[in-house]
Amino acid sequence: MIQALFLSPVFSPLFSPLFSVVSHGLGPVFSWIFWILFVAGVGWVFWRTIKGREVERRVIFLMMGLTVAGAVLTGIVLPVQETVVVRNIFDTIENLEEGDKVLLSLDYDPSGAPELQPMAIAVSQHCLEKKLKICYMTLWGTGGAMIADVITAIRPDFPELVYGEDYCNVGYRAGNEAVLKVIATDFRKTFPTDVSGIVLDSLPMMTGVTACPDFSYIVAIGSGRPGIKEWVEYVVEPSGALMGSGAAAVSAPQLYPYYPQQMNGMMGGSKGASEYEKMLRRGYPKYGEFRAQATEIMGPQTVAHVFLMLLIIFANISFFLAKKRKGASA
């Protein structure tokens, strides 16, 4: 009964442009409770601000936690706008020809995974849809697990994939920048074998690959050092390979200088990932919204953003009020 009320035509159109709710969440009743609590909490913080009191950090922590937790539980999905920077990567892969080889480097660890794993998965899915061949590698010791996770995630969609023919995983080699320096000109020197010790020459897809530029496209997804900057410096600049990248939101702004000369596109944070997911969804409708990991993250992120913006506004109101009071008393 209550559910029916919330789902009634009176309410849903009101909010549908704002957000929609995915099926795995706790449902509309909970969303309403959540929004009421959210507004009440923000109102309380605002009230304290007006009264000229500082909000204690723990209250901010609590509000932040409740906001994100609530948004996760309700499963809010927000509309995504596409940008050219991401579109370039999508278009490059879209325009490659069947059988072309793509090198996917996943240079991050589990802490970067929420943002970056969706990119790796979306790019992999796109490549495989286009029947491109993917070679996975990583510069991070902890990246091996990330590659394994990506492969596990994409396998069910492509049961006919053959290891060594359609994709391969050369894994991790220690040496950071040195690895890149070498593979820019000689791929096999650093990666004579794949991750499980199979000689690279015996993998059909790797015949003809001697150096990084032999890949039609390189997608470096990374969250630190060694990462995208090193890829640009040690591979793209000396060898002229074509590269796109996926960066954690935190490092994206400082990688902008490399776009568009050294890399033709960049996905920044989950925003970039969700854009890519959206493009993928449009081209290949079988990837529904429910399976778009980054898109799922965007909802809670935006709610947290609203909260943070309100906090900053309140902080300034309280600051000016305090200044005024001080001025009046003086």
Partner: peptide
């Protein structure tokens, strides 16, 4: 590890509240 990292979401809020005036 990931939890330590995610503490940043809280700290970024408190830092913003304090610094952006």
């Amino acid at each position: 590890y990931s939890t330590m990292f995610s503490l940043l979401a809280f700290f970024i809020a408190s830092a913003a509240y304090r610094a952006f005036r």
